[in-house]
Simulated scan of single mutants.
Amino acid sequence: MKFLLPIFLFLGIFGGLSDDGPNENFDKEMTQLEPDSVEAIIAEHFVQSFSFGAAGDVLIHDHLYEDVKTEDGYDFVSRVEEVSPYLQKQDLVFLNQETPIGGEALGLSGYPNFNSPIEAADLLEAFGTDIVSNANNHTLDKKEAGILRTIDVFEERGIEYVGANKSAADAERDRILEVNGIKVGFVGYTYGTNGMPIPEGKDYLVNLIDSSPVYEDIEALDKKVDLLVVSMHQGVEYEEYPREEHRQQALEMTERGADVVLGHHPHVLQPIEINETEDGREAVIAHSLGNFFSAQQSLETKLGGIIGFDVKKQAGETSVDNVRFMPTYVSSQEYDNFQLVPLADAENYGLEDADLVYEDVSTHMTEYSDQVEIMEYLE
């Protein structure tokens, strides 16, 4: 992520510069300005902005890590080189890390109790990931030790996380990233942990939807940030549309202050919705971003994508503009040679009727809103 300080040019606001040297009156007026006045001028006259990119489930099955195993470890990065540049060019990148990253010390494993090689974090770095959700139904697959080791890995790589925590204090910590002078807050939750019990007295380990004050959390963090992103891990697996109760919940979140809701868990794509809230904002809801990189084999579970949009702030108001979606596809020969590629290129990787699949995905993802632009390659 490019954490750039805004650069503001004041020439001409209080008087110009002469051709033969600095204008003394201009210099004098600038030095007499109070800091609050400078901030007010910046807020009123200058636009701050950044680009945001997000994708769905990074779901490391045993077939996947076995396929990328080398003599030196696990080479995930070479399998995503066709897609990673489209995320790397975004200023802020969010992903759903679906599986614990505990490494061989905790025993590598696939479904139903996942644990990924440490090199799975190389994959996140290759995507330019700034923050991940680690709240999902597999968060406790390796129990508390898996959560703690995964968080260690994130911290070693400089990747922020939201939804699962290492302590009570960590759970209380606001997740706020500042990008080009714009403060972005994140909250994240999961419907459950596949029946894995949370250790007694350690409810902080993972944020459960039913036992968390979700709306209150949103309202509280909204007061501290310019943009608020909510990650929700819930829904029904393999259903192509959200349940109405979940859709209404997402809409209510936007009314409470959320600007973006990113949905995970169904492992298939669900439409993107743009809600015009009562206070006049246009909030983005991606009900399910599907699988991004996994070993699931049905066509629907091989399809995913990157949602992108521009965030702009001017005169104290923040907006989300130019919502776009780039479909992706995980190519494989049965359980070998996994490659993440743009869906627009999938014919070159053996997908039959790739043009029709692309057309179907485009139609599906825009069913709830015609303001979403489907792009072959994300800008």
Rank of each mutant, 00 (worst) to 15 (best):
M1K: 10
M1V: 10
L11S: 13
G12L: 10
F14M: 13
M30L: 15
M30T: 03
Q32A: 14
L33A: 09
E39Q: 12
V47R: 13
S51R: 14
F52M: 09
G53L: 09
D57A: 12
H61T: 13
D62K: 14
L64Y: 05
D67L: 10
E71F: 02
R79E: 09
E81G: 02
V83K: 03
V83P: 05
V93C: 07
F94M: 10
E104C: 02
E104M: 04
E104Y: 03
L106C: 03
L106N: 07
S109T: 10
N113T: 13
N113F: 14
F114R: 04
D122E: 15
N134E: 07
N134P: 02
N137P: 08
N137T: 13
L148E: 11
T150W: 04
K166I: 12
A168W: 06
A171E: 11
D174P: 03
R175D: 09
I176W: 06
V179G: 01
N180T: 11
K183H: 11
V184S: 04
V184Q: 01
F186M: 05
V187P: 00
G188E: 01
Y191W: 10
N194Y: 03
I198M: 03
I198Q: 05
G201I: 12
Y204C: 09
L205Y: 08
D217G: 03
E219V: 06
A220I: 08
A220P: 00
L221N: 04
D222A: 15
H233R: 07
Q234K: 11
G235A: 06
Y238T: 13
Y241L: 15
E245A: 11
Q248A: 13
Q249T: 12
E252S: 09
H264I: 08
H265L: 05
E273Q: 11
I285R: 05
L289Q: 12
F293H: 00
S294Y: 03
Q297P: 00
L299T: 11
T301Q: 14
T301Y: 01
G305D: 12
G308E: 12
F309G: 06
K312E: 15
Q314D: 04
N322I: 06
E334L: 12
Y335R: 14
Y335E: 12
N337K: 10
N337I: 02
F338I: 09
N348R: 14
G350K: 07
E352C: 00
D353Q: 12
D353T: 02
E359M: 11
T366G: 03
Q371D: 14
M375Y: 02
